[in-house]
Every structure is written in C-alpha cells, then in structure tokens.
C-alpha cells in the first residue's frame, strides 16, 4: 500500500476525530482525498505533529473525544523523536499517533531515512506507548480499532511503500484559515461551542 491509499483508509476511519497531519506530500495527499474541518494541516514545522497532538490530547481531557490523532511520517518523526518519551511521560489518555513509515523522505527525492535500521515502534514501546503494527488494510483496521479503545498514548506503526501520488496540487492556503476552520470544529466538538482563539 502506498501513502495515498493509506490516507484514504485513515480518512474513512477518522470523520469525527481531530487529525493533525504532517507537512508536504502527506498533507497535500490527504487534502486531495478530502479536505475536512477536522483536518489540521501542519504545512511546515516538520516534526511538530506529535507535539501538537500531545497538546490537543491534554486539552481534550475530560471530553468525549475518544482520541486526538497525529499523522506522522518516519522522516518527520526522526526530526523530533522527543515526541515519544514526552508522550509516554505525560501519558495523555487521548493521544494516538499513526506513523506511515515508508523508510524514505517522500517529499525529498525519496532519500532514505534511518527507518530501515531503527525501529520507531520499538522506541515508542520503550517510551511507554501501546504499540500496534500493520502492513496492509486488514491489519491496519484491526490494530486501529484496538488502539482507538486503549487508554493512554497509542502508536500505530504502519509500513507502507514509498511513492507519492501524481497530479496532487500543492496546498496553497493561508495557515490562519486552517486555524479558524479547525478551531471552530474542535471547540464545538469539545462541547464548548465557542470560536475563540484563546
């Protein structure tokens, strides 16, 4: 499975959950699958998705939001692996990180990452996350369902093939429009029903 197919699957499963998405090809391809109010595209800030998802999972404490999902790539997670010990330490119940691991920097000419020698799932496990592993649609669906219902930080390590979708347009939007759209959706979803920026 390539990233685009994995994103179609993830989009199908996350209609009612906040989804924080890593930069470049992953954001572009997800927006091409469907652009929705619950998507927060991190257009730059490579490596920050897990930190942002951690903050939102802390903010969602006490709500009926089942999980806040961060969608990362292996190259991006290697840029800020601190996400894993911090998530394990703070241990927000609603934190769920999905790693699409194709072992290359997909937006940077497919240069290999460390992922063929270093197992990010094992690092997550050692940091206190509940880890699931998948490499096809059936195993992804099964592990996703299990981890969605597991309290504490959960990490789904999905192996995919390298390769970007073709003819996907660049995501040329003002970031503040993403803020306003996502914030309105998420604050409403949290039951606050307000659209405030602070």
């Amino acid at each position: 499975m390539r990233r685009y197919q994995a994103l179609q699957l993830i989009n199908e499963l996350t209609a009612d959950l906040p989804l924080v998405v890593t930069c470049a090809a992953t954001s572009r391809e997800l927006a091409a699958v469907e652009t929705r109010d619950n998507h927060f595209y991190v257009l730059d800030s490579m490596g920050l998705v897990g930190s942002i998802a951690t903050g939102l999972a802390i903010a969602a404490k006490g709500s009926d939001v089942q999980k806040v999902i961060g969608l990362e790539g292996d190259g991006s997670l290697f840029m800020n692996p601190n996400v894993l010990p911090t998530g394990g330490f703070l241990s927000p119940n609603r934190l769920f990180l999905i790693l699409l691991d194709n072992q290359v920097y997909g937006s940077t000419a497919d240069i290999p990452t460390y992922a063929d020698r270093v197992d990010l799932g094992a690092i997550a496990e050692a940091s206190g996350w509940t880890v699931g592993r998948a490499d096809d649609e059936a195993s992804f669906r099964s592990e996703y369902a299990r981890l969605l219902n597991t309290a504490g930080p959960t990490f789904l390590h999905m192996r995919i093939e390298p390769g970007n979708a073709t003819d996907v347009p660049k995501l040329l939007v003002d970031p503040v429009t993403i803020t306003n759209r996502f914030q309105a959706w998420f604050t409403h979803r949290l039951g606050q029903g307000t659209e405030v920026n602070a």
Partner: peptide, 14 residues
Amino acid sequence: EEAVGVIGALPLAG
C-alpha cells in the same frame, strides 16, 4: 521546540 508544539497548540482547543 517541543514546548511550542504542545503548549502552542492549546488555542486550537480554545
């Protein structure tokens, strides 16, 4: 950097 991500994201949740 991580602090900016974790704490800086809070306004997205009001």
